[in-house]
């Protein structure tokens, strides 16, 4: 099976979001994506997979499959979950090297960068760090 690159997925997401003119439409779409994110198996929602944030919590599970990294993730807040869905869509099933190098600028382009600010304390910044760390650890094997 072939996968589009992170860049291609990012472009696709930017294209999708360009349809919306108001913040309400944009966030309704984001929330919808959060709802469609395959719900992580409860067995994976353990404390060691929990990315702590003061405001909302994120669970992240990573594993390697056929030379690619697969992420499963979830959040207890739906807007956070929407962004989690975007990140999983872009980074899951990608080669570890591409994940480490990715700049995720599409998040900025679609105007959601504020959610990745450390002051939001919603767990997303740490989640991205952990995604890249996991990918990095696969490279060293």
């Amino acid at each position: 099976m072939s996968y589009p690159s992170i860049q291609e997925i990012g472009d696709e997401i930017v294209e999708e979001f360009s349809w919306f003119s108001s913040w309400e439409e944009k966030y309704e779409h984001l929330i919808e994506m959060g709802r469609q994110l395959p719900i992580i198996d409860e067995a994976y929602k353990t404390d060691d997979r929990l990315v702590r944030g003061c405001q909302s919590r994120v669970w992240l599970h990573a594993e390697s499959e056929d030379q690619r990294v697969v992420f499963r993730a979830d959040s207890d807040a739906i807007i956070t979950k929407g962004i989690v869905a975007l990140l999983v869509r872009a980074l899951s099933h990608q080669p570890a090297e591409d994940i480490v190098r990715s700049d995720l600028s599409f998040i900025d382009t679609i105007g959601l960068k504020a959610h990745l600010s450390p002051t939001r304390s919603n767990g997303l910044v740490s989640m991205i760090q952990q995604m890249k760390q996991y990918a990095g650890s696969q490279l060293n094997h």
Binding site: W23, Y27, C54, Q55, S56, D76, A77, I78, I79, T80, N122
Partner: peptide, 22 residues
Amino acid sequence: EAHPYDVGFILDKEGVAVRTGH
């Protein structure tokens, strides 16, 4: 069932400053 973080975020978009969290 709405998470406080989500509610607070939307209130801010409407100019309303509240605190959310623990």
